[in-house]
């Protein structure tokens, strides 16, 4: 099995602010990983750094063995689209939806990458199977949907891409507990095959027992978890 994601010595931040400090993380194919941390400890920054959206970063990030990190000090988002085309899907915290476009447009835009575009019909069927409520909303502009529905659209858009690595940033944020449970369950239903999924979450109880590994993120450093499938848990815990 190859490593879907391999992060080595990643530091990232915005301007004078260093948010992540020397992060090491390996994600294997077929794994679902939960990253648990409080607000402001760098969960979203980690996701953004993988997508190339932070102010600056350095260190190595390898997606399916291809380097997508490196040292970069400006132009947040300049390479994001290329990283996305290599098989990354980020479902960000703020949803980053297109408020004037319909749900159907969103699903199509999710399948923007060339390969996914060709099979977007089948993929749409598949995604609607995971999020059945979207079936009725296909013609609606997203600006008029509720928070939970928007989150579903955001996740569905990410799933359309046929990505190897799914990054889900705070799926429960701003949702009622019941709905957020439903969202997490839907995430667990997704067939990741030879890909992997990383979920950042504040609420430990939502993910406990459902994911392959749980890792804590505290003050920009990964703690209290196993950062690589090969390293036993207590060793990393001792190291920090």
């Amino acid at each position: 099995m190859t490593d879907v994601l391999r992060i080595e010595n990643l530091s990232a931040g915005y301007g004078p602010l260093g948010v992540l400090h020397n992060i090491n993380l390996t994600v294997r194919a077929g794994e679902r990983i939960g990253i648990i941390g409080l607000n402001g400890h760098g969960k979203s920054t980690l996701m953004k750094a993988i997508a190339g959206l932070t102010g600056w970063q350095n260190g190595s990030i390898k997606l399916n063995g291809i380097e997508i990190g490196g040292t970069r000090s400006q132009g947040p988002g300049r390479y994001t689209h290329k990283i996305v085309r290599m098989g990354l899907a980020l479902m960000p915290q703020g949803d980053a939806l297109f408020h004037g476009l319909t749900v159907a447009d969103h699903l199509d835009s999710g399948a923007y990458t060339k390969r996914a575009w060709r099979e977007r019909k089948q993929r749409r069927e598949y995604v609607l199977g995971i999020f059945p409520p979207l079936q009725k909303l296909l013609g609606q502009p997203v600006g008029k949907l509720s928070g939970g529905e928007r989150r579903m659209v955001s996740l569905a858009r990410g799933l359309m891409a046929d990505a190897k690595l799914l990054l889900v940033d705070e799926p429960s944020l701003g949702l009622a507990p019941k709905i957020s449970k439903g969202v997490v369950e839907a995430l667990m239903k997704i067939d990741i095959r030879d890909g992997a999924m990383v979920i950042a979450e504040q609420n430990l109880s939502l993910l406990e027992g459902k994911v392959t590994r749980l890792i804590g993120l505290h003050a920009g450093k990964l703690k209290g978890g196993s950062v690589s499938p090969d390293v036993p848990l207590h060793e990393t815990a001792h190291h920090h």
């Binding site: 530091s11 301007g15 004078p16 260093g18 400090h21 020397n22 102010g55 000090s73």
Partner: peptide, 11 residues
């Protein structure tokens, strides 16, 4: 530039 360099020194 300076602040980024400073931000990189995590230790």
């Amino acid at each position: 530039r300076q602040s980024e360099r400073r931000g990189l020194q995590s230790g």
